[in-house]
């Protein structure tokens, strides 16, 4: 996956502010830079909510476009959530999620969308990325995304890694889990 370096991320995080100023100075097309700004904000927010240091900007832009296309009010909500994140210092995704849901219960759905986007690769019930979804990145030492198994025949007989019982707490209140009908 094409990843930003930590430095790129900081740059993008500081934001977008820097980027848009530069963009405006260089070329007078503010419409373009506003999309860029939003996508950069989305990426910065996503980095905090995934507790990650790098994420693919290309995937971020694609997810953002799908999410706001499906639910137009997400545009403002993501911007507000970004502002909320900027107003305090959050050490973790969990801290931010707790604060966000407390500030406005609607942020829960926004965060679900962002998690579903990055981890499942899905937005607006459409696949935005399949094999590049983070759920496969964090399980790649054990399983392959279906149709992309490259362990060779019978790799499956070997012992996969042990996984300790997690102890961390959720950041959001639970929701009803619905299995899609087949």
């Amino acid at each position: 996956m094409l990843r930003m370096s930590r430095r790129d991320v900081l740059l993008a995080g500081m934001g977008a502010a820097v980027a848009s100023v530069t963009a405006q100075a260089a070329e007078p097309q503010p419409a373009v830079s506003s999309d860029v700004t939003e996508a950069a904000q989305f990426l910065t927010l996503s980095l905090r909510l995934t507790d990650r240091e790098t994420l693919s900007p290309a995937i971020g832009s694609a997810l953002y476009a799908r999410i706001v296309q499906a639910v137009p009010e997400r545009k403002a909500q993501i911007s507000q959530l970004y502002t909320l994140m900027r107003q305090s210092h959050f050490e973790s995704a969990q801290e931010l999620a707790i604060a966000a849901e407390k500030a406005d219960p609607a942020f829960k759905d926004v965060i679900h969308d962002i998690m579903t986007g990055w981890y499942r690769g899905v937005a607006d019930q459409k696949v935005v990325v399949y094999r590049s979804a983070l759920m496969f990145d964090i399980t790649k030492d054990a399983v392959y995304p279906k149709t992309y198994a490259t362990g060779g025949p019978f790799y499956w007989t070997s012992k996969p890694p042990e996984v300790p019982l997690p102890t961390g707490a959720p950041g959001l209140s639970p929701s009803k889990f619905v299995v899609e009908p087949t």
Binding site: R131, T147, Y148, A149, T150, G151, G152, P153, Y155
Partner: peptide, 16 residues
């Protein structure tokens, strides 16, 4: 890609 990998790296055990 199913066998040669989406990245062209082939199988981890060199079967492909």
């Amino acid at each position: 890609a199913a066998c040669h990998g989406y990245d062209g790296a082939g199988a981890s055990n060199r079967y492909v």
